[in-house]
Design a protein around this nucleic acid. Structure first.
Lengths: 232, 232
DNA sequence: CGCCGGATTGAGTGACGTCAATTACTGTGG
DNA sequence: CCACAGTAATTGACGTCACTCAATCCGGCG
């Protein structure tokens, strides 16, 4: 099946008509079910996709099964980069996701949009490396919450962001694999933050940030020695 | 001083005439001294450089001084990527280094060479994220040795690679900051490997791999679920 | 209601970090 | 060439943060 995106699992969920309303149907955009591994391929070069809606993570495995989630993608992000025709990472959907293949004109990494996405991705990866290598468990979990809140900020019906509530698409295990921790440690941190009034959640996936300042302080701050590239 | 590369430290070492013989002087290539922080900038867009020779690392800091080395660059690699005109990371030389600014035609990220470099860098970052998040201290140190051996493989006078000897440009502290460990742990691992006959070193920076197979086995193996993009 | 996967919680342990003392290098000045 | 100072590396003793193991709880679903 050339040119198609091939989910391995249950996949291709026919969305209950109400739950997803196509936000102005994009040419050839597709809906993929939760928990599918995306073996995106595509004859010639058709490997780049844009996340329109939902949450997709990129991951790698060690041969004994240890998993590292290397990036968490939300609306707008691209995935499917290749080196020598091989995908760089495995992509999995953590929610029903809508994705859209990039048009032929955009497939090339020399496309400005793609090039720019590559650079910001690189930057995110570097910040995450610092988190993985140098932050404590609490700092890691706090950082994750800050980032996910930004990424999946629930917009109220008026279009304005609701008061810092967001849907956590990741399970505790996913968070652990993203942050280089164990499920138990993630759980303990989250519940400590809850006791301390930084966040709140009744359902494990429905997060609300109560004290953004203190949460961000707990997350720590990344900098690097100066270096404006263009200018004064 | 527009358009120049500005080292902060002692810098601009006038190389003792013998120690560096320009390998056919590249247009506008420069020699930078050891242990300089490179505040590369450059009026318009002049921010991309290629490492011709030597070792340069990219790093980030947390506000309390914890450091993470996000990438180690050897001959051929590019550095100086920017997002919104800001450098993504700080670059420091770990040896006397020869670098070469990319020509005007190449400055843009849409240049195929640059785009391709961005992708392989992204891939390296992902593999390193897995190392940081999921590998043990021993696996980390072994992985580092394997990678650095490849990167700085000392070529014998006949041009063929000498028997797995290489110069370790990083100090124990640099290794620690790259691998997310402490100096002491790095040192213990290295000396254990030495006792076990995997490697040897008399001088702390002069490494030799004695048993490549066992070293690579100790390093562990990264994979990710399949996914040829362009395909049979 | 009973099952099952995810999440929480507690108790105990171990890998790696911290602290401190010693040794090995490197460079400088006499 | 040697003395000395300063930094890097090693090594040991000890402490702790996060992992492991295990029990329990909770929520969604047949």
């Amino acid at each position: 099946m050339p040119e198609t995106l091939i989910p391995t699992a249950a996949s291709a969920v026919p969305p209950r008509a109400s739950s997803i309303r196509p936000p102005r149907p994009t040419p050839r955009s597709r809906v993929v079910g939760e928990n599918s591994t995306l073996l995106y391929e595509g004859g010639r070069n058709r490997s780049l996709y844009r996340v329109v809606d939902g949450c997709i993570v990129l991951s790698q495995l060690l041969d004994d099964g240890r998993r590292q989630i290397t990036d968490v993608l939300g609306p707008g992000r691209l995935f499917g980069f290749t080196v020598d025709g091989r995908n760089i990472a495995t992509a999995e959907t953590l929610s029903i996701a809508r994705i859209e293949p990039l048009g032929d004109a955009d497939l090339n990494a020399t496309n400005p949009t793609v090039a720019s996405e590559l650079k910001t991705t690189l930057q995110r990866m570097q910040v995450h490396a610092t988190l993985l290598g140098r932050k404590t468990a609490s700092e890691k979990v706090a950082s994750a919450l800050v980032e996910l809140a930004r990424l999946f900020n629930r917009t109220g019906r008026n279009g304005a962001p609701a008061r810092l509530g967001f849907h956590l698409h990741l399970t505790r295990a996913d968070l652990a694999d993203w942050l280089g921790l164990t499920v138990e440690t993630v759980s303990r941190c989250l519940n400590r933050f809850k006791r301390e009034g930084l966040i709140d959640f009744s359902h494990p996936k429905t997060m609300r940030v109560l004290d953004p300042e203190r949460l961000e302080a707990t997350a720590g701050f990344t900098r690097h020695r100066t270096g404006d590239a263009a200018r004064p």
